[in-house]
Write a protein that binds this DNA or RNA. Sequence first.
DNA 1: CTGAAAGCGCTAACAT
DNA 2: ATGTTAGCGCTTTCAG
Lengths: 328, 328
Amino acid sequence: MKDVAARAGVGLKTVSRVVNGEPGVTSDTAERVQAAITALGFRRNDSARILRKGRTASVGLVLEDIADPFYSSLSRAVEEVSRLHGSLLFTGSSDEDPEREEQLALAFCARRVDGLVIVPAAGADHRYLAPEVRAGIATVFIDRPPLGLNADTVLAANAAGAREGTGHLIRQGHRRIAFLGDSPDIHTAAERLRGYREAMAEAGLPVDPNWVAMGPTTPDRVGAALTAALTGPAPATALFCGNNRVTVAAVRRLRSLDRSVALIGFDDLEFADLLSPGLTVVAQDPAGMGRAAAQLLFARLGGYTGPPRRVELPARLIIRGSGETPPA
Amino acid sequence: MKDVAARAGVGLKTVSRVVNGEPGVTSDTAERVQAAITALGFRRNDSARILRKGRTASVGLVLEDIADPFYSSLSRAVEEVSRLHGSLLFTGSSDEDPEREEQLALAFCARRVDGLVIVPAAGADHRYLAPEVRAGIATVFIDRPPLGLNADTVLAANAAGAREGTGHLIRQGHRRIAFLGDSPDIHTAAERLRGYREAMAEAGLPVDPNWVAMGPTTPDRVGAALTAALTGPAPATALFCGNNRVTVAAVRRLRSLDRSVALIGFDDLEFADLLSPGLTVVAQDPAGMGRAAAQLLFARLGGYTGPPRRVELPARLIIRGSGETPPA
DNA sequence: CTGAAAGCGCTAACAT
DNA sequence: ATGTTAGCGCTTTCAG
C-alpha cells in the first residue's frame, strides 16, 4: 500500500480510501491510484486489515467428516448463509475424536473467526470453549447438543423420528423389531434408540436385548449385529437402522444373506428410491439444519444477545416400500 | 499478551517464548506466565502472528459444490494432507460460475493463504491469478486444467476412461451407443465425449447425432435427452453417462420408462452395487486426486521450484452388471 | 479532499 | 535467562 501511495504520489490513507471505496477522493486522484494498483498488482492484505478492524469475516465449521453426504450438505448450507453475510468458511473434520474437535475449534479461534459451528464429537466436553465464548466468539452447536456449555443449538427430531419409523413398522404387523445404531455415546444415536424403545413400549412390545446393537458403523460390526438379530430363538422380522452408514451396511448384508426383512433407515440416501424395494426412510434435512445454525450464528453477530436458543427440525417418514412388507 | 506479561511481572517476549514453547525460560517463570495465561483466558491471536511471520498456515479450496460426493471426498483428502502440514482449510463452492470462482480465490488470496487448490469453473479464465502466483501463492488445479495460466494440475484419465467404458459396451455387442454428458465447456465433459468418440471410431461405428447430448445435469434435461436417444429411427441400445449426476438422472428415468438398456456411468456411486442390476461404472479416485493435489501444493511450499507438474490418475472400470447386458 | 501519526497483537533482532 | 525496540500492512483519529 505504501508502494502504491508512492507510485501514485499520494498519501497512504488516500490509497486506503480508494481500495475500500470510501468517499472523499476526487475521481482524478482515484484514477491515478487505481493505475498504480494494477501496475503493481497490489491486493489488500486482509490479515492486516482484520488485525486492525477486529472482525475477520470468517466462520469455522467443525464436523465429523466432510466426506459424509449428510455433513457435506449441511456444510454447503452453512457456506451459503455465510456468503450472504460476506464471510468465508473454514472447515475441518474431527473424525469423531474429541481431541481433534478441540484442536480444530481452538485453531479457528486463534485465527479469530467471528463464529463457530460445531458438530460435537462423541463425548467431547465443551468447557474448553468457555473462554472463547466469553471473548465474544459466537458459537452454535449442530446435530448434537454441547456438553458443559449453554449455547445456541440446532437438532433434528431424533427421538420423534425414530418413534415414528418404528411405529410404522409396528403398524405393518411387526412385533419383533431390531434397532441397529451408532455408538451410544453419540447423542443422536442415543436419542433414536430412545424413540425406538418408546414406540415399542407404547405398543406393549418387549425388546429382546438381542435385537439392539449399538456401536461403530463399520460394515463388519453392523453385519454381525444384523445376523445376530435375525437368528436365535426370537429372530427380528423388521429392522430400524440408526443412520445412513448403518443403513448402507445393513442393506448390503441383507443382500448377501438373500434375506428380505422389512427395513427403515434414519437419513435419506441418494439412490433410496432406486433400490428394490425402494428404501423407506426417516429423512432429516441437513441443508435446513445448516441454514438454521448459520442463521442463529449471524443473529448473534448481528447483535442478538438473548439467551441461547434451541431449534429442532422435524424428521419425516418417506415411504418407498422396504418398510411396508409384512412379517414373514 | 501485554496483560499476561503485566500480570506475571515479566516482559512481553518472555510471554511469547512461553506461548510458543521456545527455550530460554526458567520453569519457574514459565509457570508464573502459564498461571497468568489461564487466569486471563489468553489465546494467542494468530492473525497478528501471521502478519508478522508471513506464512498463514492456511490453504484455500475452491470447488464446484462441496455437497457433491465427488468433491466432498476430494475435499476431505485435501484437508488430511493439509492437517499433516499444520494448515487449516478454507473451502468455497463456485457453483460452476467463473465469477464466483474468481471472487472466492481472490478472497482467499487477500487472506494470504499459502496456497490454493482450484477446480476451475466452466469457462473461467485464470489470468486473474497471475499476480497472485507471482506474489508466491502456490496454486494447484484439480479435476480440470487452468486456462491462460501454467500451473501444477491433477486430472483423471477422462478420455481413456470413457474410451474403456464405451469399448466395453461395444464388446458386449452394442453398435448404437448413446453418450449423455455435462456441458461441453467443462473440460471433463469434453474429454469424456472425446473418449467415447474415439472408441466408436476405433470400432468403425458411426455416431448418430441423436445419441449425443451435452448440457446441464438437471434431471429434466437428462431425461429428455435419454428419451430422445432411445426413440427415433436408430434407437440406442446402450448408454454411457458422463458423470455421477447424469447417471443418477438416467437410471431414474430408465426406471420410470420401464426400459432396460445397457448402461455405464462415469464416477462411482455409493449404492452402485445394490441396484438391480448392479451399476457398471468407470470410477475415478476423488480422494487420490485430492491427496495428489495437496502434495503438489506442499511440495511447492516446501521449496520445490521446478516447472509445473501434471499428474493424471487412472480411471478404472468396475463391472457390476448394468454394462454387460447384450443389445435387445 | 487529503495526509501524518498512532496502534491493532504479535515476533525478529538485538540488547542486557 | 530475560527485556527492549522496531515493524508486519492496514485502519482510525485527527489535523490540515
